[in-house]
């Protein structure tokens, strides 16, 4: 046991320098990686802060981070600039995660619904109906991604009462399916019994 330890110890001493160098190298590499990640995140946060403070920061949808797309869309949609926000949503649909997409769809649908309500107040129903239909589709998309999104449920309910979903096919009654013709026959009074 002692011999073995003595054989081991000088080797441990020579290994120690290598281990320390490896620790230093790992630490430096970790510093560089986490530092650059932190720096890029802090830059994104700075942009988000400026947008939230109300500054009109131009954002290139093709290259911006999903969080920036989210913030830019929220900024535009709060000011009812729906057409400018659409490219942000299109881009986020490709790249962003579900939470960001849900929020952007919800904000977009809200903006459309606000525009529709304004149009209804002005009596412009032709303009309002397609806006409500689009908003409903976007609320639905948001709820598909997050079925527990209560704000989207509430606002979808509002939109549904403005322009109600209706069965598309004639005869597709949601409460009671149509009874079959055979059943209808037998229940009819005065069915022919076969005698003249």
């Amino acid at each position: 046991m002692r011999d073995w330890l003595q054989k081991l110890l000088p080797r441990a001493g020579s290994v120690k320098g290598g281990l320390l160098k490896a620790l230093l190298a790992v630490g430096v590499v970790g510093c560089v990686i986490s530092g650059s990640l932190l720096y890029s995140k802090m830059r994104i946060n700075a942009t988000i802060d400026r947008l939230r403070a109300g500054a009109d920061v131009e954002v290139d949808p093709a290259s911006a981070a999903p969080a920036v797309l989210d913030a830019r869309a929220a900024y535009l949609l709060r000011r009812n600039r729906i057409d400018e926000a659409q490219p942000m949503l299109d881009e986020a649909g490709e790249r962003a995660d579900a939470a960001v997409n849900v929020r952007m769809l919800y904000n977009m649908a809200n903006a459309r619904l606000r525009a529709a309500i304004k149009a209804i107040e002005q009596g412009n129903y032709d303009k309002a109906i397609p806006l409500v239909t689009l908003a409903k589709a976007e609320y639905r998309s948001a709820l598909r991604l997050d079925p527990e999104h209560w704000d989207a449920k509430y606002n979808l309910d509002v939109a549904m009462r403005l322009v109600r979903d209706l069965p598309q096919a004639v005869g597709e009654d949601e409460e009671k399916p149509l009874e079959t013709p055979e059943k209808l026959w037998t229940d009819l009074p005065g069915a022919p019994k076969g005698l003249p």
Binding site: G30, L37, K41, I48, D70, A74, N107, N110
Partner: peptide, 22 residues
């Protein structure tokens, strides 16, 4: 309507911890 949702800032806790540890 229920109000719009503001876009959240990114969380940097993981990066800060990783930077500290490294």
């Amino acid at each position: 309507l229920q109000a719009d949702l503001p876009a959240p800032r990114l969380m940097t806790g993981t990066e800060r911890t990783a930077l500290l540890v490294s």
